[in-house]
Design a protein around this nucleic acid. Structure first.
Lengths: 310, 310
DNA sequence: TTGATTCAGAGGAAAAAAGTATCAGTCACC
DNA sequence: GGTGACTGATACTTTTTTCCTCTGAATCAA
């Protein structure tokens, strides 16, 4: 005899068409209207639904001549079938796109805070517009690291904070992020809405490493505000940095994080005349891959505020 | 005339049957054998594949009379169609279960170690407080995987290790697990009761993948202890990981496992100032099913140690 | 060149789906 | 309580789709 793989069944398969039919009926709660919506007559629709119920061995609808209702199983099927159809449509699109030649792998480096805020957006956009593209993301990097990685072609694109030293790289400005103050929630300054940098003159600071752009800007801003920050702890990872703040070890200046970590024990407060750091996307100028170009195009759409990017 | 909703298309729909056919051909790389496997003749199979290609407007296969190969689009379709079919089968099962009187089905994703320790407790609690609920559990997953699965609603709840990037998800803190050292029982350090991380500086490490939270925390902790772990083997499954340790290939850091594997050949040792990883339950914020709410309530009862969760 | 192998096409048979006509149950309303 | 309007199911026919058999064209090995 012959072994029949479970994958190769035939007859009693639920088909996409049946799911569409079921969704229509479930949504309209009315065979007639559903049939109309599907541009078909009512009897074959009834038949298909009945067949579906038989295939699943389960009653999906409670029919009276007066109205149609969903059983629990029907509700489940409705919810999941909708998702499934959406997935199938997405798959169709993706296959078409890949058929038209969008595919490959890009290695992306991302700087500290952008890892959590911007990167998911980028990944999402890439998924949408460049399906088949694999992104290999390395987060929580510092600008100098990324410069070297770009030059050595260990990454293809980097989301970093200018300025950069290298002249082999190209930059595209993305946005300007104001720095905000991260405070332990029980800190006395936490009760105030808007702070001056000078208010922090005597506070212990948790800071990014010296080589980071955020640190450079922060230190410079403090100097102008008339004090030199007392750094008690230095750390590269934003998540770690914020844990230190939560633990009450000090305060920190971090780039605006609109919907950042709902981190317990931390509050964010705005600064008057807040210093700001730029965010830009960088790539090696002589890298002229079609894939890279298309990826960079993803950054075009949002109103690319042409700010200064030094 | 009449507006046709995008959901209600007809003719050019990709059907489940076609996907099955395509998978067979793609796997066999041979129309004849695929047809045999599908219990049909070869010509109709060719026709269906051709029709599929036309519907997608994309070439999926490169045929010579000598062999069949996949295009990039074909590879994509193969991978995704497999997943899709698996989901459809799962859906069928779930609908049947609910039809037979289960009050509902929740799909749960669970991260590595929690699979063995916490999951049985959860399942037990669910059985007790929500009889009729069927849990469909997928274990040994990584946080990024689960995030995507939650967003795409392929799972309803996930037990994962923060941090998460997505902002569509909600989190509820569960517990903090200290990392312990897993050692081969004949290891020289096994004779000591409490270890320092620095003791492991020269040991070969078996580690979870880079994208896992445990790996991130471990690596960071080692860095602080003044060394960079030498990773000789990477693996996703805790059971596999521990087998490597048992085989004497190296040591590993794993989350506390009170009643973990009584795996022969392994001993666990505590660490001084042990790093810890959080465990949380996550769900898609806009999923407001009654079933999900009730399930989440199960996590309320234990004295929810309010720790900070970076 | 010949034979074996493999995929595609043509035309007819079988199966599935859709259409038409009709029936039977329920409810609103007089 | 009877009547008519409305709704979904059934019976049967027509149309469409899928599948099968037979055959042909292309490729490769000997």
């Amino acid at each position: 005899m012959e072994h029949i793989g479970a994958r190769d069944r035939r007859v009693d398969d639920v088909e996409v068409r049946q799911m569409r039919y079921f969704i229509a009926v479930a949504e309209e709660k009315h065979f007639g209207r559903a049939a109309q919506r599907l541009h078909m007559a009512q009897p074959p629709l009834s038949q298909q639904i009945k067949a579906l119920e038989e295939q699943l061995g389960t009653q999906l609808l409670v029919r009276t001549t007066r109205k149609v209702d969903l059983t629990a199983a029907g509700e489940l099927l409705l919810a999941r079938a909708r998702l499934l159809l959406a997935e199938i449509e997405k798959l169709e699109q993706d296959v078409k796109l890949v058929g038209q030649g969008a595919s490959g792998v890009l290695r992306v480096g991302v700087s500290g805070t952008a890892t959590y805020r911007l990167m998911p957006i980028i990944v999402q956009a890439a998924r949408e517009h460049m399906p088949g593209l694999r992104l290999s993301v390395q987060g929580e990097m510092l600008t100098p690291e990324m410069e070297i990685a770009l030059e050595e072609q260990r990454v293809d694109v980097a989301v970093l904070r200018p300025p950069i030293r290298s002249n082999q790289l190209s930059l595209k400005f993305l946005e300007k992020d104001e720095l905000v103050v991260a405070l332990p929630e029980d800190h006395e300054l936490a009760s105030r809405g808007l702070l001056d940098l000078a208010d922090l003159a005597d506070e212990p600071f948790i800071a990014y490493p010296m080589s980071s752009a955020v640190n450079a800007i922060s230190t410079e801003a403090c100097r102008r505000a008339g004090f030199s920050p007392q750094i008690v702890q230095e750390t590269q990872e934003t998540s770690t940095l914020l844990s230190f703040v939560a633990a009450g070890m000090g305060v920190a200046l971090v780039p605006t994080a609109r919907r950042m970590f709902a981190l317990q024990g931390i509050v964010f407060r705005q600064l008057r005349n807040a210093p700001a750091v730029d965010l830009a996307v960088a790539w090696k100028t002589d890298n002229e891959t079609a894939l890279l170009k298309k990826f960079l195009d993803l950054f075009e759409t949002p109103a690319t505020t042409e700010g200064n990017q030094a």
